[in-house]
Design a protein around this nucleic acid. Structure first.
Lengths: 232, 232
DNA sequence: ACAAAAGTGTTTGCGTTACACCCATGG
DNA sequence: CCATGGGTGTAACGCAAACACTTTTGT
């Protein structure tokens, strides 16, 4: 722990696992530090007079340009293995800000959050510490800093378990969507294919969907109904 | 945030919801601060070189005299409503330690943990800040500090959902127990009565129990089998 | 007419619920 | 032999999986 005062709480951070989807594969937003080949989850710090949840929303908005994201907290990581001040030191030196005693070099307990968004709505913008921020396929992740790989695994576990209850909250699908699109979301996230007929029945039985007019795509086949999530 | 250095991380705390059971009702361990009529969950702080999980185990051991407790993290609370420095200030003044600038008066983000133990195995001992620590029935809790009531509600929610998977880990029942005792645990925690026959079948179908000799209590009825949890 | 995609129906099996019946034990 | 508690059996129900069948659409 360092004694340097700043506008942020020392020793506490958050890391966000941003799942992105757009029709096919599930992706994750990863940032790379300047010339360092160091990949990490987008994370950040909490201001002294800011709620934790607010801090995460703020940071995410800065990095993705997307506001009003539904975020879900899933676990807090506090082992000592997380303490690797050399990495952050190198990052700050690369940035031309060499420091010996800085709160960023302290030990951090990090709170994990995840979100699920449509990555077509998003223009990720690197922050001042990193030089790139990119979507990576779930099965083609680069080597990640510290325990970030473990954080992703745990986030994915939570996402899969709570998918039914959370999908409404994530603004992942367009306002109107077909049953097939909905199924593709489920299949990408669960990593398995589902029976079409049974999926349809299960979704309709949840009573959260509203059926609208049919969608004529010009394809040589029956036109599918459009659905939206019920508002109330 | 204060800049006073100490052996603890500033701004981070944990609170533990210790559920206790011993045959009938579900109870919770609550401490009371000296002459203050201020009731709170037993919580504590993390040393600068100590893992979060370790800190919680240490604090709990100090307060209950029980080691090797299975603890489960469930949520981290970080709203600004938690920031009520006056309360801690009054507590410290009562203790004869008036201070203006102390890390304990800072804002805290707290990590919630819960455990489930047999309260007959436990001799709760007050720590230096509090003057009593007692078991309270779940439905007769006193008014609690800050958001501690909300923390309990959330802990209970998690306990109920994860009971099947977690009961093995909690050292709640004696080595050997009857099916009835196991059912009473479930009923106390879930807050509802269960069908005897079906409960028996469900438990046996989980394949986590080992059946031993019958228990002759001298009661005018059939002697029940004893069970233990399977080790491997 | 055909292929492709979407919607609906049917059968089956499994797990849960409710309730009944039988067994063991001590008074 | 009876009351009490414990173990097991069974029918009914609901849900979910697997699969088949029908309908719609553009070529």
């Amino acid at each position: 722990m360092t004694s340097t005062t700043s506008e942020y709480l020392p020793n506490i951070s958050y890391d966000s696992v941003i799942f992105g989807f757009s029709g096919e594969k599930l992706k994750i937003l990863i940032l790379e530090y300047h010339n360092m080949k160091t990949f990490a989850l987008p994370g950040g710090f909490v201001k002294v007079d800011e709620a934790l949840d607010e801090a995460v929303k703020r940071g995410l908005s800065e990095r993705t340009g997307l506001d009003e994201i539904y975020l879900e907290q899933f676990h807090t990581f506090g082992s000592m293995q997380r303490f690797k001040p050399e990495i952050m030191k190198r990052i700050m030196e690369e940035q031309g800000n060499p420091v010996e005693d800085h709160w960023l070099l302290g030990r951090f307990i990090t709170v994990g959050y995840y979100a699920l968004i449509n990555y077509k709505n998003v223009s990720p913008t690197p922050d001042y510490l990193s030089d790139s921020i990119e979507w990576y396929d779930l099965d083609q992740l680069p080597d990640l800093m510290m325990d970030h790989r473990e954080i992703i695994e745990k986030a994915l576990e939570h996402l899969r378990i709570h998918l039914d209850h959370k999908l409404l909250s994530f603004n992942l699908l367009p306002e109107m969507f077909t049953m097939k699109e909905l199924q593709q979301v489920y299949e990408a996230i669960l990593g398995e294919s589902l029976n079409r007929a049974n999926f349809q029945r299960k979704m309709l039985s949840l009573n959260i969907l509203e059926r609208h007019d049919k969608l004529y795509t010009g394809g040589s086949h029956k036109a599918p109904f459009l659905y939206s999530f019920k508002k109330p």
